[in-house]
Amino acid sequence: MTEEHIFADGAGGLLTANILCERCNRHFGRHIDAPYLKQPFIQVARNAHKLGGRRGNIPQPFEGPHTVTGPSGSVQVKLDADFKPRVIPQIKDVSITPEGGLASSFLIDASDRDKIPVIVRSKFERFFKSPQGAALGWSPQEQRRAIDQAIENYKNAPSHSTPTGEIAGQVAVDMPCLFLEAAKVAFEIAAVEDRESFVESARATHFRDLLGSVRDGTIPTRSGFDDLMHAFDAEPFSRGTSLLHHVANLANSPTHALHIAVLHEKHAVVAMFGIPFIFRNLRDTSGHGAIYSNCVERREVRYMRT
């Protein structure tokens, strides 16, 4: 058995258990966790809570590029993880002036001035290798002088502010993909709490078969969200239910900052970033109850057996 993050660690999950073989662990990670973490809605949540995952890279679903109208025309910008815009370096094609000199225009973010030599040198060297540049007949020394002069001119150019405006966008929510992550959590929580009595049950076998058929965040043989939930005997759970509010109070955190798993009688409720599902009759018998809360802000897990 290998260590499994029950809630995806890239989304702030801390709860682990040795309940999966290596093959199943790889399958769940590739086909269930990875598509879930790539969902724009989940990336927004990860950005809001600064969850960088294993590599520490905080996602930015609105990165861009975006076009902004500036003093020199249209400017391409990208947003970093903190939503700060950065100008994408743009250098127009080098041209020959009537006087026999070289001309070009250059846009770069002020914070990237240290990159000017590399960008300009690359652009001008490509120009001198082109038929137009080769026709000048300049010696290597003359080419180097022209490049060095261009670099110096750009480095000494004053900075200009770029006007800012609104950037509009939409975030799509792939509910089947989010649901399958919740189904994986429900299955694993029941395995942790009930052990062999669940693992060897017909319901566990049914869940294993369904989860084993997931490919890239979907089950190809299921025609739509309703059909998918019917296969797991599940449905969306009310976000306003007192159950989630009680767990949030126990965890001292808002529901949107929590991953929650609750076993009650035969059923399981799973909510991640405030989106809950209920899995009916997951267990064969009404065993003990259990409440797990994983706070992504304080990075802590709380557990209660009832």
Rank of each mutant, 00 (worst) to 15 (best):
R298A: 04
K129L: 13
L282E: 01
G56L: 09
K50L: 12
P61D: 03
G212L: 07
G12K: 05
A182N: 05
K184W: 07
P176G: 04
N18Y: 12
P61C: 03
D33K: 02
I119F: 12
V185W: 08
L20E: 03
A168E: 10
D93W: 06
A191G: 13
V214C: 05
F28D: 01
T306D: 08
I291W: 13
E196N: 11
I275Y: 09
R144E: 15
G169L: 07
L14S: 10
F277P: 04
G13K: 08
F179C: 06
F225I: 09
D284S: 14
L136I: 00
L79C: 05
A17V: 06
P254Y: 05
L14T: 01
T16W: 08
I260M: 11
N249Y: 12
G100Q: 01
D9Y: 09
A103E: 14
A150C: 02
S139C: 06
I151M: 09
H5L: 11
R222P: 00
K155Y: 03
S72G: 15
S201K: 08
S122R: 13
F83R: 10
R30P: 00
S201Y: 04
R121T: 08
K78I: 13
C295W: 06
Q132E: 15
N153P: 00
K266V: 11
S139Q: 05
I167F: 03
I58P: 06
P176S: 04
K92F: 03
S161G: 12
T162I: 15
R26F: 01
A202S: 12
D33V: 02
R215S: 09
A11Q: 01
I6E: 06
R305V: 05
N156R: 15
G287N: 04
L211C: 05
Y36T: 06
K92L: 06
A251W: 01
L51R: 02
V44E: 05
S293D: 05
H27K: 03
M1E: 08
P35Y: 00
R283P: 00
H230F: 12
L228N: 00
K84Y: 10
T241V: 00
L282M: 06
F237P: 03
R86F: 14
R215W: 05
A186T: 11
P85T: 08
E188G: 03
H230K: 15
V199C: 14
H264G: 13
L20V: 02
V199G: 08
S111A: 15
A191T: 14
D148N: 14
K84F: 12
S293W: 13
N18C: 13
R203N: 05
E3Y: 01
L210H: 08
A146S: 12
A134L: 13
N153F: 05
M272R: 11
G137W: 11
C295L: 00
E265A: 14
